[in-house]
Amino acid sequence: MTGEGERQEPFWPLHGIRLGTPDLELHVMTEADLEEVWQALPPDLELDPGATSYEGLGGRGNRRAVVAQGYWHAFGTWSPKGWALPFVVRREGRVIGGQWLEGPEWAADRTVDSSSWLVASSRGKGLGRQMRGAVLELAFGSLGAVAAVTSAYVENAPSLGVSRGLGYRETHTSVLEHNGRRLQHLRMEAAEWREAGHGAPVTVQGVAAAMPFFGLGAARD
Results as ranks from 00 to 15, higher is better:
Val112Leu: 10
Ser116Met: 13
Tyr153Lys: 13
Leu216Thr: 10
Gly82Pro: 02
Trp83Arg: 08
Met1Tyr: 15
Arg110His: 12
Gly128Lys: 04
Pro49Gly: 08
Gly70Met: 03
Pro10Gly: 04
Asp33Pro: 04
Glu31Met: 05
Val67Leu: 07
Ala147Val: 01
Arg63Met: 00
Pro212Ala: 12
Ala108Lys: 12
Gly103Ser: 09
Asp33Ser: 08
His27Ile: 00
Arg18Thr: 02
Gln69Asp: 15
Met211Asp: 10
His27Ser: 12
Gln69Asn: 14
Ala32His: 13
Glu4Pro: 06
Ala148Asn: 06
Arg194Met: 12
Val88Glu: 03
Leu34Glu: 07
Arg182Asn: 07
Phe87Ala: 04
Ala147His: 01
Val89Ile: 03
Gly206Asn: 06
Gly98Phe: 05
Ser116Arg: 12
Thr111Met: 10
Gly97Pro: 07
Gln130Asp: 05
Val204Pro: 02
Thr52Leu: 13
Trp78Ala: 06
Leu45Gln: 14
Gln8Ile: 13
Leu143His: 02
Val162Phe: 01
Gly217Cys: 01
Ala218Lys: 13
His178Ala: 01
Ser116Glu: 05
Arg132Ile: 09
Gly103His: 09
Trp100Lys: 06
Leu166Arg: 02
Ala84Leu: 12
Val112Ile: 14
His27Leu: 00
Pro22Cys: 07
His15Ala: 13
Val207Thr: 15
Gly58Ala: 10
Phe75Ser: 11
Glu177Asp: 13
Gln205Val: 01
Leu34Gln: 05
Gln99Ala: 08
Ala208Lys: 11
His27Gln: 10
Arg220Pro: 06
Arg164Ala: 14
Arg182Trp: 04
Thr30Pro: 05
Leu24Ser: 00
Gly197Leu: 09
Gly124Trp: 08
Val154Arg: 14
Tyr168His: 15
Gly126Ile: 06
Glu31Tyr: 04
Pro10Asn: 05
Ala68Ile: 00
Ala147Gln: 11
Arg194Val: 12
Glu9Ala: 15
Ala219Trp: 03
Tyr71Ala: 01
Ser121Cys: 03
Trp38Gln: 03
Gly206Ile: 08
Tyr54Ser: 02
Arg63Glu: 06
Thr173Ser: 12
Gly16His: 00
Glu25Arg: 11
Val207Asn: 05
Gly141Phe: 05
Leu166Trp: 05
Thr150Tyr: 00
Glu177Lys: 12
Asn156Gln: 08
